[in-house]
Design a binder for these strands. Structure first.
Lengths: 147, 147
DNA sequence: AATATATGTCAAGTTAGTTGACAAAAACGG
DNA sequence: CCGTTTTTGTCAACTAACTTGACATATATT
């Protein structure tokens, strides 16, 4: 049984610190590099280049943003409104990350089962909320924390 | 209030499909490119290059793996055993992802609160387990799903 | 129709990554 | 401790990836 502090690892490599090149973003999203350059020039997506001479770099968050813009464009929105709509949804990633950092206290993985300790279950704080995967399915239950 | 199917977006861009260059991995982890090349040559980390002529590509999972190997090395483990130890923890990311795909039915974000519907609470399946963030803190509660 | 927005292409130049060779630490086995 | 193997760094020549700017063009917008 492997037992470890997963949240700690995730904090060592914040997702914002992982950047990728324009080719990687284009491949992942199916959006042409020329579009990405134009969108960047208009300030719709952010360039995280390390120096002013170096190549463009983007984050995973931008990848999601680009994917969103792409689908809104496909739905017939103009670029400007597609960007605005994508903007509102960008906060999801932040919310998601804060949830993981806040609540994934501990995680155990054995051969075929995984268990996540989600910390105190607020309606009954003496018990911990646990999630367990068996047979490809996650189920919740309450447990009294040890020690 | 923005309301949308976030899990769906994340599924459109599986994290494994996002690849990054060796420079990006080196920057994110602080591990030298020469090390990464050597580790790859020994099969400790996987190269996802698109063609046999093109440059090395790695995934976010590899970034975590590299970070793990690095910390085990710093703890005094040999490279071989650091790799073995990192291997066991690599499944965390898969477990995390499967939890997310399985359980993040819906997510709502308003100005200062975020709410995640985690689906039926198995001890009381008629109610849904909800997570809500207020004041930078996530709390769980049960709710009767609407319609 | 005229103008502004959005995208594609191409060439010449720059930055990033590759390989192979070599050197040299660091770990290992006896 | 010594010889060997593993692991890492550096460097030069080469290739791949990306950049910019110019131009063409298609698609809105007014």
């Amino acid at each position: 049984m492997v037992k470890d502090d997963m949240a700690n690892l995730m904090k060592k490599i914040p997702i914002e610190s992982v950047t990728l090149g324009i080719g990687d973003v284009a491949r992942a999203t199916g959006v042409a590099q020329s579009k990405l350059r134009y969108w960047e020039s208009k300030g719709y997506i952010k360039n995280h280049a390390v120096t002013d001479k170096s190549n463009r770099k983007f984050t995973y968050k931008t990848v999601l943003q680009v994917q969103l813009i792409k689908s809104f464009l496909a739905d017939g929105y103009t670029l400007t409104s597609a960007v605005a709509r994508a903007q509102k949804r960008a906060i999801y990633l932040d919310a998601l990350r804060s949830f993981f950092e806040d609540r994934f206290a501990q995680m155990d993985v054995a051969d075929h089962t995984a268990t996540i300790d989600l910390g105190p279950f607020d309606p009954t704080p003496s018990k911990h909320l646990m999630a367990k995967r068996t047979d490809q399915q996650w189920r919740f239950y309450l447990a009294t924390p040890e020690s």
